[in-house]
Design a protein around this nucleic acid. Structure first.
Lengths: 207, 207
DNA sequence: CTTGTTTCGGACAATTCGTACGGAACCATA
DNA sequence: TATGGTTCCGTACGAATTGTCCGAAACAAG
């Protein structure tokens, strides 16, 4: 039942995914009705229920499809780099977001009951945490900040900037924003604000 | 119409706000019906519509009430500090989240059509950006990363960690998490991962 | 006490939802 | 190209929820 092999299944699901994205951008997720999705996808309403329990599940399917697509872009990058690289290069994330902008907009707006965005954040943070943990093990150093906190913070930063970037006309292109995010997260706000680097051992009294 | 002065209005709105929070934690925002909110708040259904257009507006009211409460806590802190301080101390945010945990959970889960969470993020990031901008002006330095990017990144980091913290049993208390977030965002991932501090002028090749 | 506002309780039509069904169209095999 | 299994269509149905209306009662503030 509902085999992913079947061409009809692929067709229907793909159609419904992009129908949802379109409609959500037009009138907001909450205002989109299942009838409309089916109509736009040129599919019977009964077909929708044959694949998804509700709108939210369809949106989650959109998220999974998006992240799968994102992962599919990485091997080429990794191969071109020094061996053993398993990171999630910021630059390709923003470029991916540039290409798939409408989808990112819909996903990152976080509509629905939040399951979809949470799925996206989870898929990302789990990836990030794994990378950080491997790196720490490999270098044999003890992190000054626990890896799980690090992963959550960095994912939050990424998602925050990403949401803002795809939803507004910020004036920065993918390359610029990549540079800022990378340097900021790597060297911190003190460096980023243009101050001379003090020694971080004393407790800082910034906010 | 709908004057905020009237005691009946205050009563009704407060009751509906906490009813929504309770019910959302019990069964999820999407599953909560307006009937239930009214019933739990011990208010007629018509009264709901006299105050809010839909559930989302009620949730936004929850957000505004929450941030207003958060702001109300700050003056005491600011006064106890060196004059001229206008920051948003991380520590008090996490302590506030600890006290108001159910509300933070509901808000940060980002259910509904996202307007409420977006309002929260906006209210926070606007505050943050103002602080960063003032600080940059005051110090007369040119930030290496534009202030708007800085604000979005830091807000994202804060919201990301906050969501994770209030929704999971992370094992860190408010003070610990505050220290980590503050140091990490101030000095960056390179420092946080325990590495010796290289010179940040060369282009980094981390992710 | 009087005036204006808010709340109540009940009713209403209109949407949307989720499910069911037989028959037609389709796909992957042989 | 024949066949058995699946997916899709079209339609129909009851149930639940929504948003709006109204007059009467309760309340707040001068």
């Amino acid at each position: 039942m509902t085999s992913v092999e079947d061409r009809r299944v692929r067709r229907s699901r793909r159609a419904m995914r992009s129908a949802l994205v379109e409609l959500t951008l037009e009138k907001g997720f909450g205002a989109v009705t299942i009838d409309e999705v089916a109509a736009r996808a040129d599919v019977a309403r009964a077909t929708f229920y044959a694949h998804y329990r509700d709108k939210e599940e369809l949106l989650i399917d959109v998220v999974r499809d998006l992240t799968a697509d994102r992962e599919r872009l990485l091997p080429a990058v990794e191969q071109a780099r020094s061996e053993g690289f398993t990171g999630l290069p910021v630059r390709y994330i923003f470029e991916h977001a540039e290409q798939q902008r409408p989808v990112y907009q819909v996903v990152l707006r976080g509509e629905g009951d939040g399951r979809a965005l949470r799925e996206f954040v989870y898929l990302t943070s789990a990836r990030v945490e794994r990378v950080f943990r491997d790196r720490a093990d490999q270098l044999g150093v003890t992190p000054r900040v626990p890896v799980d906190v690090l992963a959550q913070a960095w994912t939050g930063e990424l998602v925050g900037v990403l949401s803002w970037w795809v939803d507004n006309d910020t004036g920065y292109d993918a390359e610029e924003i990549t540079g800022y995010v990378r340097d900021l997260s790597a060297y911190g706000r003190v460096w980023a604000s243009g101050l001379p680097l003090g020694h971080p051992s004393a407790a800082p009294d910034h906010d």
